[in-house]
Structure formats: structure tokens, C-alpha cells
Simulated scan of single mutants.
Amino acid sequence: MRIIKWVVRLLVLLAVIFVGGAFLLPKETSVARTVTMNAAPEVIFPYIANLRANQSWSPWLDRDPDIQLAFNDVPEGVGAAMSWQSEHPQVGSGNMIIIEAQDPRRLVTALDFGEMGTATAYFNLVAAEGGTAVTWGFTSDNGNNPMFRWMGLMMDGWVGPDYEQGLNNLKKLVEGA
């Protein structure tokens, strides 16, 4: 009986630490990667602003050849939307819509991953030595969900390499490699 009480107290303590500790973590998660491309922003921007063109450089589409994609009738820019469904755990399902497009400098999308939450992704294109520095990033509000706050600590490691791969794919595409 004494061991059971000890185990219960330990579990309660761990739960308090888990939940309480979560509220010491940042409420917002951010991830961003930048790659300089030897191309003008006007050459790069159409590959970002047209969601169908994203298929040529997306880091996720190669992971699941059976992914199902659907697009709305807006070809590019504000209002263009895409949804995807995949059984692959690294791809998942969701949808995105372009909510801001400042051709050829900035694009912002709203992402909805269903039960996994929402995020805002962005692309910034800035003149740099040797071409254009393209930054792909996202921010997510983890709210008061302790699990999302803990997951926020791992997002850079989960999403960052994919953003790097996508930007490098885009770089090869726009540089004609």
C-alpha cells in the first residue's frame, strides 16, 4: 500500500511539473530558414505565389507518391488555396490559403493542420549579394495547450530541415541547375 501511495504521488508531481512547466515555455513557436539564390525576386516569386508550381520544389511531395492534392480556382496570389491528404506521418493532411502577396517581395499563407493546429507561413525575398535571399518561415500560436507548448521546442528540428530542403530545391529550379 505504501508503494502505491508513493507511485501515485510521483505521478501527480510529474503531471504538475509537465503542465506547470509548459506555461513557462513560449506561447509562440517560430522556425525560419534562408537560402541565397542567384536569381531575381521576379523569377523566384511565381514559384511561391502559384501553389501548383510549389509541386516542383516542395520537400514533402516526394515522401508520398499517393498524396492527394486539391486546388481552388484562384491560380496564384491572395485567395489561392490548396489542400492535401496523406497517410504518410511526415506529410499528414491540411490546407493552406495565400492571405498576403506583395509581388515580388513577400507572401504569407494561413495553414490549418486540423487537430494539429494552425500556423502562418511566410516567404520574404530580399536583395542580397549574389542574388536574392529567400527566407521561408512560420509562426504558430500554441495557446494554452501544454502539449503544443512542449512540441514547440522540437519544431525547429522537425520543420527546419524540410524548409532547408525546399529552399535548396527551389534554388536549383530557379538557377536552372
Rank of each mutant, 00 (worst) to 15 (best):
Pro46Trp: 12
Leu11Gln: 01
Gly21Thr: 04
Leu10Asp: 00
Arg33Thr: 06
Ser30Ile: 09
Arg2Asp: 03
Phe45Glu: 10
Arg2Asn: 03
Ala49Asn: 13
Thr34Leu: 08
Lys27Thr: 14
Pro26Ala: 01
Leu14Ser: 12
Leu51Glu: 07
Ala32Tyr: 00
Phe23Cys: 09
Tyr47Ser: 00
Arg2Tyr: 05
Ala32Pro: 02
Val19Phe: 12
Ala40Met: 09
Ile4Thr: 14
Ala32Met: 04
Pro46Glu: 13
Arg9Phe: 15
Val16Leu: 12
Ser30Cys: 04
Pro46Leu: 11
Leu11Thr: 02
Ser30Lys: 14
Val7Arg: 04
Leu24Pro: 00
Ala15Trp: 09
Glu42Cys: 01
Leu13Lys: 05
Ile3Asn: 13
Thr29Cys: 08
Ser30Asn: 11
Val7Lys: 04
Ile4Arg: 15
Gly20Met: 10
Leu51Cys: 06
Pro46Met: 12
Val7Tyr: 06
Pro41Tyr: 10
Ala15Pro: 07
Asn38Lys: 15
Lys5Phe: 15
Val35Leu: 07
Glu42Leu: 01
Val16Glu: 03
Ile44Leu: 04
Thr34Gly: 10
Glu42Val: 04
Ala40Lys: 10
Lys27Met: 10
Asn38Arg: 14
Ile48Tyr: 11
Leu13Met: 12
Val16Ile: 14
Val31Met: 04
Ile4Tyr: 09
Gly21Asp: 03
Ile48Met: 13
Trp6Leu: 14
Ile4Phe: 15
Leu24Phe: 12
Val8Cys: 00
Phe45His: 12
Ala22Glu: 02
Asn38Val: 15
Glu42His: 03
Phe45Gly: 05
Gly20Phe: 13
Leu11Tyr: 00
Leu14Asp: 07
Tyr47Phe: 04
Gly21Lys: 08
Ile3His: 13
Ile48Asn: 08
Arg9Glu: 05
Val43Phe: 01
Leu13Gln: 07
Lys5Val: 13
Leu14Cys: 15
Ala39Ile: 07
Trp6Pro: 00
Val35Pro: 09
Pro41Val: 14
Ile3Ala: 15
Val43Ala: 12
Gly21Ile: 02
Glu42Trp: 00
Val43Trp: 00
Ile3Tyr: 14
Val7Pro: 05
Pro26Val: 01
Val31Glu: 06
Ala22Trp: 00
Val43Pro: 00
Arg9His: 09
Thr34His: 02
Val43Tyr: 01
Val35Asp: 10
Val12Asp: 02
Glu28Val: 07
Leu11His: 01
Ile4Asn: 05
Ile48Glu: 07
Glu42Gln: 11
Arg33Asp: 10
Phe18Pro: 00
Leu14Asn: 04
Arg33Glu: 11
Phe23Ile: 03
Arg2Ser: 09
Phe18Met: 08
Thr36Met: 05
Phe23Leu: 06
Thr36Phe: 03
Gly21Met: 05
Glu28Thr: 10
Ala49Pro: 05
Val31Gly: 02
Thr36Leu: 02
Pro26Thr: 01
Lys27Tyr: 05
Gly20Ile: 09
Tyr47Pro: 00
Phe18Asp: 05
Leu13Asp: 08
Lys5Trp: 15
Gly21His: 03
Ala39Asn: 01
Val35Gly: 11
Val12Gln: 04
Phe45Gln: 11
Ala49Gly: 14
Leu25His: 09
Thr34Asp: 09
Phe45Thr: 10
Thr29Ile: 10
Arg9Asn: 10
Trp6Gln: 10
Val12Cys: 04
Ile3Asp: 14
Val16Lys: 02
